[in-house]
Structure formats: C-alpha cells, structure tokens
Write a protein that binds this DNA or RNA. Structure first.
Lengths: 339, 339
DNA sequence: CCGCACCATGTAAACGATTACATCGCGGCT
DNA sequence: AGCCGCGATGTAATCGTTTACATGGTGCGG
C-alpha cells in the first residue's frame, strides 16, 4: 500500500486539508507549517494519487494522441513537437498509434475519451462523423492533416497544396515544361492536395504538360513509376514525386535504366526525409516541419482547454530545399550538407 | 457534465451496482436485464470515468514510457513495439520523452509514478539509484539498454557486444586484418559494449590489429574519423563504425579523398538504418530490431504486473546484413534491396 | 473590557466507480 | 406447509483527493 495524504497529515500532526493546501501552494498556510509539511511529504516519498485528483478536479493533465500507422521520422518528429508543448504546461501524452481501420480508430477514441483532457487526432479514418459518434461532445479535439470540411473541430495541416505548387513553379523556372507527377493514392488527403497544387501551378503555365502516375507512397511504387517514365515516347523533362520515398524509388529505376539524373531528367520529392540529401544526386524536395505541426496542434488544444477559442492561425508552409536532382545550378554545399 | 453510471441506472430503473455488474460482464445478471442496460448505456453514450475506476481498482490500465531525446526511426520503432504489446492487453501508453538530464528524468519519473501501472525506462541517466529515489517501490519497472548491474530491476538490451563481435568476425573472414573502429562516446553504454565486442573478436585473431577512434554517433564525427583514417600511414583494411550515421560520414570523407569503398577499404556500420541500403556502395551493417526490444520490454512488464516474476529471457541479437561496402562478394540483390 | 473580523486550520461532503454484504423472492425438499 | 438456500438485485462503504464550510483563537478598535 502506498503512502497517501492521510499518512502525511498524521505524521505532520495536521489535517489532510492542510496538507493539500500546503502542497498545492494555496494561500492561508503558515510559512513554517508549509515547510514542515513539505519536509514530511518528501521524507515519506508522498506522491499524490493521480486518479483521485482527477476524479475531483475533472482534469487528467493528459493529452491524448490518436495516430495512424506511422513509420519512421514522421512519427517521432510529430511526437516530439507535441511533447514539447505538453511538457511546457505540465501535461502528459497518452498515445494510441497504429490504427489501420476506422473500426480501430473508433475503439481508440472511446478508450481514450475518459482519460484525457483533450485529443490530438491524425487519422485518415477520423472524419467529423466518426468523432461525433465516438466522443463525448465535451472532449476538445484538434485534427491534423485531415480532409477539410470538418467545421466543428479545429484543424491543422501542412500546406500540401502550396508546397506542391512551389515545387512545380521551381521546376518550371528551371526550364522544364513536360512534367510527370508520381501521385499518392486517391484516398489520401495529403496526396490529393499535393496533386491539386501541381495542377494549379501548371495551369499558370500555358505550354506546360502534365502526366500523372499513381503510386502509394512506397519506394517500390516509385520504382515502378520510374520504369514507366523511362519507357515513355515523349519522356518528361522533370519528375515530381508526391513523397521522397517514391522519388528515391524512381531514382533507382532511372539509374538502372541508364537515365542520368539530373542530366537527362530532373527529379524532385516531398518531405525532406534525412535520406534525401544522402543519395546521388542529392534530392531536391519540400521540407515539411512535422515537429512544428505537432507542437502547434498541441498548443491549439491547450489553448482550447484554457477557454481560448480562437481557431489556429494559419498552417505550416513547407520549405523548398534545392539540391542537385532538379537540374538547377547546384548550391554550394558539401556532400554531407551540414546545416 | 458528462453522463455517469447513475444516469444509466436511473434510466434503466436499476441500481448502480447492477449497471456496473452488467457492463463489466460479471455473472449474476439476467440476460434480458444485461441487454437492456447495455442498450441504455450506448443510447446515453455512457463512458466509464477512468479516474474513478482507477481509484477503486488501483489499476490505471496504462504503461508509462520514459525515453531520452530520441530522433528518427529508433524512437518510432521502439514505440511501435511497445504499443503492439500494450494494445494486446488493452493497455495504454503514457510517454514522456526528451529527457536530456538526470534532473529531467527524475521529474518525469515522479510525475508518471502515480499514473501508471508500470514503467518502461530507457535513459542514460536512469540507474538503480535514481530510480529507487524517485519511484515508490511498488511500481514495476523494466529498464532498456541500460548499464548492467541494476540488479533489482528487469533489464532488456540489444546484444551490442555480440553484434559487434559478429561484424568483426565477418570482416576477418573477408580477409581484413588491420581494422579501425570508430567508437561512440565513452559515457555511452551501447558504445562501450560494441567496442568490447570488437576487442573480443580481435583477440581471437593473432595477426589482427585494432585502432580505435572516438566519435559521438553523429555523421559529422564519422566524417572527421574518415578523414583521419584516410591520412594514416598504415591505412586500415576495414573500418567498423559503431553506428550507421558515423559509417556514412566516414564514407563521404573517403569519397571526397578519392578512396574507394570497398575496393581500397572496407566499411561497416551498426543499426541498419533505412538509409544504409541506399548509399553507394550499400552499407554492410548489423540490423537491430528495435521494435522487438520495445515489444519484449512491454511484455516483460505486463508479465510482472500479472505476477509472473520470471526475468526476461535473453536479449535481442542483431542480424548481420551483408551488402557491398565490406568487400565480400556482393549478394544478389537489386539496388532497391526489396525485402 | 468586550466584541468583531480575520486568518489558520479542521471537518466533512463531494467526485464516479467497484464490490462486500444485506435483502428479497422463489422453488424444492422434508 | 415451512424452511433453507440460492440467485438476482439493492445498499452502502470505499478508494485519495480537493474544497466549501465550520470552528476557534488572536489582535485590534471602540
């Protein structure tokens, strides 16, 4: 049995109320007494029982995060950002990851709903309907990278559309006109936004041509797309993959086929995964700041908890990272690209 | 105000006790009544209040994870493994990451101690003393990748020593005799274990020679080491870096200096980060299964919670991944190295 | 010198669940 | 027919904390 506030009270010869007040920094406790109580508490290794406290205060000091199956860098960066914000406010992070289906997401939603003060949700399956159905309306929620139109919830996202547009404009500026896009799956929100950005950028350019191939964000699908591109009669001058992994797959396919990047064809990706600058040639890409997305989402949620009901300001803008794969004059960097 | 068990009881014309029994699948509730209560509960969107439940059951259904500042793949894999095990037992994961100092780790330990049923700790700062001082003795704890000798706690680790030995044996088998090791910092447990493995493997080989350089696991320190190696009078025949990032740094340094890998010098790393198979030449390395480490640690903890007090069986053995950088006959793989 | 206000501290009621124990009704056995 | 036992349900104690309210002592003003 662990030590409770009663033990501290007994040991210090005061009532539990006084202990509570002393330890929580309330006014109206003599300085000397507070000191004595503190001393006793640490001597006894007293730790308040979180559940009991939550029960009465209706606060859990915990933020819940519902995430899809995330691999690699993305996941850790996102968590890191959320953690930074949470820690600042002495909040904890309860995570529930690896949700492959709407069913699983709903379960997670229900399971977490009672244990957290608010929820950070990133899930392809989480639309407004699912949330409404599985959450008590009282749980503040912030959505990340979700399909728009979920008006009732605060939503944050990477500016996929703007990022893709920026990249295509850069490719156009490099003189490329026939552009192939290796897009992501149609069901994916990020993927569609990026494709939309590409279309918009090209619609500004009268003599631009676009051919769209579908991938699934995997390296392998990029490889397949690369083989196909290399076989084309009118080969595109530039390839823009919806993420770096597909860009790398494509790069290998082109290498295997003896097509040189960037001499014969330009190539660009999206995400700036660490690997991007290590391949030859280093990959031009859009850097997205995942940690910032997580941090902002957490901050927004925390704001909501505090009663601040201003919707989140703006969305994260990816940054164009020009390396050698796109055929623009290489910027002066060492191979290792130190920051 | 959210809906409580009382509301359900009132609506179903029964007592709270019956509702509790019905919903928790206890015996002694009529089938019909149970059905009615279930129906009312879902209609009212009743969700049990986790804190209230924890208060009386003394279980939080939550595992705490204390992690250091972890970037990248490692973090997400570890979490994924822990999540898999936790989810199987309907447990949640409360994470507290980014602890740079012993002070911070201690804070996190204290903050989490009341909110979880058990703790998974990976931290360079968490030795037995720190834990004992900041945790109620009742909290079951499993340590990961920590310095040995923390007898009171269950401990799991990657077999760094065995992995390093395996790699050096492979290098020896390839015919290399003068071997340079780019080690990690002396303060790091993993680093020292790997170094020890190297020494042990070489002590079996009469004509083996070892030169040790120190790095700090960063790419940059690998780069510096590479420059140094390339300048050596009696250049080593093989370089073994304590992790892949340093191996890559070294590779770039050698490239810049015009030393060809593996023709002029062999190179190997440790970790098998995704990038390892994308560089040219693809990097020979030891694959460590982080997810498995996390999963095992979680399982061990869960076992302890269930009263099962057998110490964890064995430790994760890294797997030798032979690619082209070590100068052994390349195995037949495509550039993309599909699994 | 009395009384009032105020401040430090104590008492006890919540919070929402679980569960030991009490109760009630019914059927079967003697 | 009466009693016993058992199965279904209700009553209330309990977990550890916070906090509204009660209490009591002290100092100050009239």
């Amino acid at each position: 049995m662990s030590v409770t506030i009663k033990d501290v009270a007994r040991e210090a010869n005061v009532s539990v109320a006084t202990v509570s007040r002393a330890l929580n920094g309330h006014a109206n406790v003599t300085h000397a007494l507070r000191g004595r109580i503190r001393e006793v508490a640490t001597r006894l290794r007293y730790m308040p029982h979180g559940a009991a406290r939550s029960l009465i205060t209706r606060r859990t000091q915990t933020l819940g995060a519902i995430l899809p199956d995330l691999y690699g860098e993305f996941f850790s960066e996102l968590m890191r950002g959320m953690d930074v914000a949470a820690r600042e406010h002495n909040l904890h992070l309860l995570v529930s990851s690896s949700h492959g289906s709407a069913e699983e997401t709903a379960d997670a939603l229900r399971a977490l709903s009672g244990r957290v003060d608010g929820l950070l949700v990133m899930s392809p399956h989480a639309d407004a309907a699912l949330l409404a159905q599985n959450l008590p309306p009282a749980v503040p929620t912030v959505l990340m990278n979700t399909r728009a139109g979920d008006g009732d919830y605060h939503t944050l996202a990477i500016d996929n559309h703007g990022g893709a547009r920026t990249m295509v404009r850069h490719l156009l500026a490099c003189g490329h006109r026939r552009i192939a896009m290796i897009a992501g799956p149609e069901s994916n929100f990020d993927a569609e936004e990026r494709l939309r950005g590409v279309r918009d950028a090209l619609s500004d350019q009268a003599d631009g041509e676009l051919v769209v191939l579908r991938g699934d964000f995997s390296e392998k699908s990029g490889y397949m797309a690369g083989l196909e591109i290399q076989r084309m009669a009118r080969r595109p001058q530039a390839v823009f993959a919806a993420n770096d992994m597909m860009a790398l797959g494509c790069l290998f396919a082109l290498n295997v086929a003896g097509v040189s990047v960037p001499r014969d064809i330009a190539l660009a990706g999206f995400d700036d995964i660490p690997m991007a600058r290590f391949v030859t040639p280093p990959l031009t890409t859009m850097r997205v700041n995942i940690a910032e997305l997580g941090e902002r989402a957490a901050r927004t949620l925390i704001g909501t908890l505090a009663g601040d009901d201003t919707p989140p300001r703006g969305i994260g803008a990816p940054e164009l990272i020009i390396r050698e794969s796109c055929g623009s004059p290489p910027s002066r960097r060492t191979a290792a690209d130190p920051r």
